[in-house]
Simulated assay, not measured.
Amino acid sequence: MLDILKAQYAMVQSARIALLNYCATVSEADFVKPLPEFVDKSMRDLLLHVANTYRSWLGRIAQGQPYPLHEPDAVPDVATLRELFQEIDGLVASFCAAIDEDDWQLAEDITVASLDRPLRLTPLELFMHIITHEFHHKGQVLTMSRQLGYTPVDTDVIRF
């Protein structure tokens, strides 16, 4: 099963590269422009939120590591986001390496600081949560770009 999850993450990375390549064509001013329809968040803000979510769920919560979350001002452009997502790729690799082949569906109580009770989750659920979370916000980033007057490109896993 581990090989399948690694292959699945490789597809996520490919879709992410397509998205970041597209974002690099957006003007820097538009990339960081807050949009009222998205609670005054920018395209950059949502992508940073995605990276921070990986750091929080897979780094802090699942592995108990002190992964700091990044603030928007520390990530001014697409190039910096690319570097951050390279770190995320390493984080995903370390998360996968820490799980035994037979334990992907073994539920454990996970402590989340903002909750008054532990969550009972499997590593597979954590993995799926962050991936679906990324794709949800990827769609929002493309919608934001359309609102700013751009024509989004295909960033799906299967692109034509």
Rank of each mutant, 00 (worst) to 15 (best):
Q140K: 01
M144I: 12
V12P: 02
A79V: 07
M144R: 00
L19M: 07
R159S: 11
G139N: 06
F135C: 09
L121A: 09
L58W: 00
A51M: 05
D102A: 13
R82K: 14
L119T: 08
T53F: 04
R120T: 14
H70V: 08
P76W: 11
G59D: 02
L20N: 05
L58Y: 00
T155D: 07
C23L: 10
I88N: 06
F38Y: 14
M1A: 10
H129W: 05
M43G: 01
T143Q: 09
H49I: 04
E101S: 15
D3N: 15
V32C: 13
L47K: 01
G59P: 03
T132I: 14
F127S: 06
A62F: 01
Q86F: 10
V39E: 13
L121R: 12
L2C: 11
Q63Y: 07
S56T: 15
D116R: 15
E71S: 15
Y9L: 12
E101G: 09
Q86L: 12
T122F: 04
D89L: 02
A7I: 04
V12F: 03
P76G: 09
H133W: 03
Q13T: 10
Y67D: 10
L115A: 13
V153D: 13
Q63E: 15
I158V: 15
P118F: 05
A18Y: 00
R16C: 08
I88S: 03
M1H: 12
N52W: 06
E28S: 14
L91E: 05
F160R: 14
D103W: 02
E134R: 00
Y150D: 13
D102M: 12
L20W: 00
I130Y: 00
F95H: 02
E125F: 09
I158N: 13
D116H: 13
A10V: 03
R159Q: 13
L126Y: 02
H137W: 01
P68V: 08
I4R: 11
V50Q: 01
A10M: 10
A97I: 09
K33R: 15
D116Q: 15
L148N: 04
P36T: 12
Y22P: 11
R60D: 10
D30L: 03
I110A: 07
R55L: 10
F85Q: 04
D3P: 03
G59V: 06
H137A: 02
A18G: 13
L69S: 15
